[in-house]
């Protein structure tokens, strides 16, 4: 079973003459434990693809299945609790880490757990465990403003992993980091994908980081134009 299944996904913004097709007929699958990139220039539609999979943007056409649950078939399926699905099935990592500035590193992880109805003690234990495993045990009570870029991004990763999601969606997670920190984050994501059996889908235009991915989809003008698997080009157009 795939963790992510997208079939003929189309997203059109606006109507009539002003309509803009952000993504057209996108089809992809990601297995548990896979680290997959969506690579493309700005405005190519990769973030729209991510937000459609992330239950933020309702697709105009197509089908989205997350961990075996069909969430969209032409449109959101009625009766779905999207917030609950996001809480339980998805983890998000952002370009600028998006840590809550008035919460400490530990509290930033705890908040995701408490939202998912864990008790304070359970949340604290899990947050400490996660942050310690990411070598942030000495930074538990630090506010984001006191963390380095790499540390803050690792806290964000810990928050994304907190509820053991089946799918992790990352939006340019290395864009704000230097090469070394970027590579560390990519290595960490790779490790987590394997250890937690999570499907990790990363949107990026950072060519420095492409080596670490299992597969890379290339997006241009709203279309998936290429797919590269472990160094092999499987579609008609090679990855540049």
């Amino acid at each position: 079973m795939y963790a992510i299944e997208v079939a003929k996904l189309t997203k059109i913004y606006g109507k009539g003459e002003t309509a803009v097709t952000a993504i057209a007929d996108a089809t992809l699958q990601v297995k548990p434990g896979e680290l997959v990139a969506i690579l493309g220039p700005s405005g190519s539609g990769k973030t729209t693809l991510l937000t459609s999979i992330g239950l933020i943007n309702e697709p105009t056409h197509g089908k989205v299945v997350i961990d075996g649950i069909t969430v969209a078939d032409e449109r959101w399926l009625p009766g779905l609790d999207l917030k609950r699905l996001r809480r339980e099935k998805l983890g998000f990592i952002f370009q600028a880490h998006n840590l809550i500035p008035f919460l400490t590193a530990r509290e930033n992880v705890m908040v995701a757990l408490e939202i998912n109805h864990l008790t304070k003690n359970e949340a604290k234990a899990r947050a400490d465990e996660l942050l310690t495993s990411l070598n942030l045990g000495h930074r538990l009570d630090n506010y984001p403003s006191a963390l380095s870029g790499g540390e803050a991004q690792r806290v964000a990763i810990a928050r994304a992993l907190a509820n053991r999601p089946k799918v992790i969606l990352a939006d340019e997670p290395t864009a704000a980091l230097d090469t070394e920190n970027g590579k560390n984050v990519m290595a960490l994501l790779k490790q987590l994908a394997v250890e937690n059996r999570s499907a990790i889908l990363v949107v990026t235009h950072d060519h420095r980081m492409v080596e670490g991915f299992d597969r890379i989809f290339t997006v241009s003008d709203g279309k998936i134009i290429g797919e590269k698997i472990n160094g092999n080009t499987s579609t008609s157009q090679a990855l540049a």
Binding site: K83, R87, I115
Partner: peptide, 9 residues
């Protein structure tokens, strides 16, 4: 927005 994205009620 972040809270909403991570599924906050």
């Amino acid at each position: 927005a972040t809270l909403k994205l991570i599924g906050s009620q």
